[in-house]
Nucleic acid binder design. Structure first.
Length: 779
DNA sequence: CAGTGAGCGAGCTTCCGCTTGACTT
């Protein structure tokens, strides 16, 4: 029987630590918090000093009794939860729930999971810091009060089951405000002038030198006049300036930066990244993945140095310690890094390998030397104009950390890599081959991606590493926000080209404003946001969290009483809740757009029971009201009168074909033709408002023809089994599941037995349902 | 999945932060 029980938060950590400590120590895990405010009640006794009413979480009951049993049989219990506000509270809850006697309880903390660090921690135990615990209780209770008082206001005034909270409501606000900026954005165009010169390289071969005019022209006439001047001009190099510059590596990953880089470089969603990282952590391949610290342990620093020395040489190594500057950071853990830096790659799924490689590179690069660059600016002048062209080039003199890793940015990558420049001299006369003036448009602000939203929240100090991914899914679950799939629009722009003394004018088209997978506010999100902004602006204030965090810090330092802090907040907040409940109007986002010229009835939009609708008529009218749903992508806020009226034109009949009626409409999956009980999707190029009966019939016949070719083979033995032709080639369909056919086999020649074999041997196809994935360690 | 929407007004919903688990046949 062990004499000591160590309790940590995570089972993976427990497993590692157990190895460092002898048989005298048993190590168990609390799996995070073991109790919380009661879930279905308010959970806070406001009248009695904001007394929290805690309950052991239902899924923790069994665990708690195991911990109790274990703690009763040992001499000493070591509470080794993380060294931050939440960790201290976990330790306190444990000591309360397990009824630990003070004399047999020790509180310890360690910053890295190494034997010396843990032994060191055991040498220096302390008591539970009750001030820090109280700061956590204040945080918890404040969040409960805000969430559980605001949400019911929304149920009453907007729609049932909605929610509001200190974090989620600000996240929605960011997205709503960005969308309004975009809707209100007016782009302006100007003419960007680029010249191509032909010069000789070292081997006397002609190469192109590209230079951009340092000035853009607002009007086409001005650009045209300038090109006219260029016809007769001589172009001379006036100046060559070389400037050395340096680039430094980014700090090692935190949760937020890992989510951003994995999104940019690997295309993973925030929750995907976290799931993969969790797997790597459980397999002992990386350190803990929920952290706000950029710090590396001495052990890791030493390993990185050794690795860089052997891989690239001494010159590539540079010792660096990064400072965590994030607001509200608590630094209970290290940065995210590989456990063993000498492991360049790992076994696992492709995703695990990619994420591991990313973490490895980032960690190693963070301990490497600066890259040394040299930037060259070449000014090119004209003899009949004061305008200057500028050609730039950049060369890497010493690659340093770039040998391993380069951080990505969110900006669209229309910036080409800087080219190498041919040898050039001041006063050199240049041979102009072509000059173009291209109309370019100013860009609207970008919509938030998941990862960009995380970055913004972190910058504002709102939310924690463990909540970024859940917050994003909450605001989508509440239908405040959805992922975009915007086609964008087409616009024309003008290009003037001067070549061989002639100026040619062309109109070209480009698609702009397309956005996929970005966060878009829904109508309900906008209505809720506006309501909260009107009545609870201080909660939605971007600085609200930062301000209360200051108070929590004061509580943690023993400077402020936690109950007093809550009282002063509640005394201002609660009366507003009461007042808003009593006096505010119900919100539906209603807008009256005008009067229908045909019927003389009012046309208005609002949120109905099943979502946004356009309504024809008024409640007080005698006639029945008419309704139509808004199309995907239309917003209550921006829909026009004409667009709203168009919605009443569908579904419409196209007349009869072979005695049966053709009807076009728009459903959940887009425009369709309905005929004889079957649905046929309209391609995006067809407008349901204008499609002809002939075109619809053509669609139906095409679909029927495709369906005929779909079936490659069926079997008498088994009606459930078919070989079909799909979008991605031939496949086997069996009891609503699909199976790949190996490329080497001819699908038409497969026998029944061969099909069954394929079904047997292939692992279960990906499920469509949202049930959580089972780990597939065995198989 | 392919069309519903008010009106009576039951009884339900909800927060943030810490951590992984996995009913049965």
């Amino acid at each position: 029987m062990s004499k000591n029980l160590v309790i940590v938060e995570s089972p993976a950590k427990a497993k590692t630590i157990e190895k460092f400590l002898g048989s005298e120590y048993a190590v168990l895990s609390s799996f995070g918090h073991i109790r919380d405010l009661s879930e279905h009640a308010f959970g806070v006794d406001i009248e009695h000093g904001f007394n929290p009413i805690y309950e052991i979480s239902p899924d923790k009951k069994k665990l708690v009794s195991e911990l109790k049993k274990a703690s009763d049989t040992v001499d000493t219990v070591w509470l080794a939860s993380d060294e931050d506000r939440e960790g201290e509270a976990i330790a306190w809850h444990l000591s309360e729930v397990l009824k630990l006697k003070r004399e047999k309880t020790r509180r310890i903390v360690f910053h890295e999971i190494t034997k010396p660090a843990i032994l060191q921690a055991i040498e220096h135990p302390r008591e539970i810091d009750i001030d820090l615990v109280n700061a956590q209780q204040a945080r918890r209770i404040l969040d409960r009060i805000v969430g559980f008082e605001l949400s019911p206001v929304l149920w009453r005034k907007v729609k049932s089951s909605l929610s509001a909270g200190r974090v989620q409501s600000v996240a929605v606000r960011l997205i709503v405000e960005r969308e309004r900026e975009i809707q209100g954005f007016v782009s302006e165009s100007s003419y960007r002038v680029v010249a191509l010169f032909t010069v000789m390289d070292e081997d006397e071969n002609p190469v192109e030198l590209k230079a951009e005019l340092q000035h853009r022209f607002a009007k086409k006439e001005d650009a045209y006049a300038f090109l006219e001047a260029c016809k007769a001009s001589k172009f001379t190099i006036e100046d060559i300036v070389k400037k050395p510059s340096k680039r430094s590596p980014a700090p090692p990953f935190t949760t937020s930066t890992l989510q951003q880089e994995a999104a940019r470089k690997l295309g993973y969603s925030v929750s995907q990244t976290m799931m993969i990282a969790q797997k790597l952590y459980e397999a002992g391949q990386i350190t803990y993945m929920r952290t706000d610290s950029v710090n590396l342990s001495d052990l890791a620093l030493g390993a990185a140095k050794a690795e860089i020395f052997s891989m690239a040489g001494e010159r590539y190594w540079q010792f660096r310690r990064f400072q965590t500057r994030t607001k509200g950071a608590q630094e209970a853990h290290e940065a995210i890094r590989p456990t063993y830096l000498n492991k360049h790659e790992i076994n696992g799924t492709a995703q695990e390998k990619n994420l591991y490689a990313l973490i490895w590179k980032r960690t190693i690069a963070s301990q490497m030397s600066d890259a040394e660059l040299e930037r060259t600016n070449i000014t090119i002048g004209m003899n009949n104009s004061s305008e200057k062209f500028l050609a730039t080039g950049e060369i890497i003199k010493f690659d340093g950390f770039l040998k391993v890793y380069m951080e990505s940015t969110d900006e669209d990558s229309d910036q080409e890599a800087e080219p190498l420049l041919p040898p050039l001299k001041v006063a050199q006369l240049l041979n102009m081959s072509q000059i173009t003036a291209t109309e370019r448009f100013t860009q609207r602000p970008p919509r938030y991606s998941e990862a960009a939203l995380v970055r913004k929240l972190e910058e504002l100090g709102i939310g924690r590493p463990s909540t970024y991914a859940p917050t994003i899914s909450t605001i989508q679950k509440r239908n405040y926000v959805e992922k975009s799939n915007l086609e964008g629009e087409v616009r024309t722009f003008t290009v003037l080209t001067l070549k061989e003394e002639k100026i040619k004018e062309e109109n070209k088209t480009e698609r702009y404003g397309a956005d996929k997978g970005k966060l878009l506010p829904t109508d309900i999100g906008m209505v809720v946001n506006d309501f909260l902004m009107d009545y609870f602006p201080n909660i939605l204030d971007y600085n609200f969290t930062a301000n209360v965090e200051k108070e929590f810090d004061d509580i943690a330092e023993g400077q402020l009483d936690w109950q007093e802090a809550l009282k002063s907040f509640y005394e201002k907040f609660h009366p507003k809740v009461i007042e808003t409940m009593a006096n505010s109007e119900r919100r539906s986002g209603e807008r009256v757009l005008g009067i229908d010229p045909k019927t003389g009835k009012q046309v208005s939009v609002r949120i109905g029971r099943f979502g946004p609708i356009v309504q024809l008529g008024n409640k007080d009218d005698d006639d029945k009201l008419q309704f139509a749903s808004l199309k995907k992508g239309q917003l209550l806020e921006t829909i026009t009168f004409e667009e709203a009226l168009d919605l009443f034109k569908l579904p419409r009949s196209l007349g009869k074909w072979q005695d049966k009626e053709l009807v076009v409409g728009i459903g959940r999956f887009g425009a369709y033709v309905r005929y004889d009980g079957a649905f046929y999707s309209l391609p995006k190029t067809e407008d349901p408002l204008s499609i002809s009966a002939d075109a619809a019939v053509e669609l139906i016949e095409a679909k029927r023809e495709a369906d005929k070719n779909k079936l490659i083979k069926s079997f008498e033995q088994d009606a459930d089994l078919q070989i079909l032709n799909g979008r991605f080639g031939p496949y086997i369909s069996y009891k609503k599941q699909n199976f790949k056919i190996p490329k080497t086999t001819n699908p038409a020649e497969l026998t029944y037995e061969a099909c069954l074999e394929i079904i047997q041997s292939s692992s279960k196809p990906a499920k469509k349902s949202m049930t959580k994935k089972k780990s597939t360690k065995k198989g």
